[in-house]
Amino acid sequence: MKARYKVAGMISMLLVLAMGLLWSTRSVSAAAEGKITGTVKLDGAAPHMKGIDMSKDPFCVKQHENSPAHLENVVVGPGGGLQNVVLYISQGLSGAEATQVASQEPVFDQKNCMYTPHVLAMNVNQKFKVMTSDQTTHNIHPLPNALAGNIPWNKSQPPGAPPIEASWKTEEVAISVKCNIHPWMHGYFVVVKGPYATTDEKGSYTIENVPPGNYTVTAWQEEYGTQTAKVTVAAGKPGTADFAFKAK
């Protein structure tokens, strides 16, 4: 009897504690903002990225006469830094922080028959722009999971066409986007809540505008999947989280 009592008591205590914790993280003021920095590396030899045969379209071939194009599934920089990894806060954000939309408009360019950037991160409901710098017709065909809330569409963009503005309704890591005319053109839209960052060619990143608190940061790479790390951000002291993905 007594044991059961204790269990029930402990469970309710834990519940109260958990609720309290949730509440305390909510009430952190967003005024004193910090950041989370770090690097993402590839542990092991960089996989070979196949060259792209663009002979279907002479325009594309011409753009790469002097710099052969390669697939960009895994882009490793000097020192093993992994490029195009998206980092976002998967736990610890309050409701208000999670619904805040980044102010800078992400731009997805079709340049030299490649996607620049190869991976574009953005917030839920954040407007982003798809533009073309090429003198050849592309079609932009994002393929989100329609059952999860984001709806696929397919639009053309001939040379000189105005940019397309769009946004996504729900979180999705990640939405595959392709050009049917140039089958090698394949990239990702990563739609997350709250502050996010994408690694540069050295594999480093900085997530700005993070209020002090305890967080779980998730790193997503298209070939290697996700990794998470616990990070604490204090006022005036940025949190750090380094990641290493194992080469397959």
Partner: peptide, 12 residues
């Protein structure tokens, strides 16, 4: 034709 490679051309 949604679901296929045929894109919309109404913008262009």
């Amino acid at each position: 034709l949604d679901g296929t490679p045929m894109p919309s051309w109404s913008d262009n």
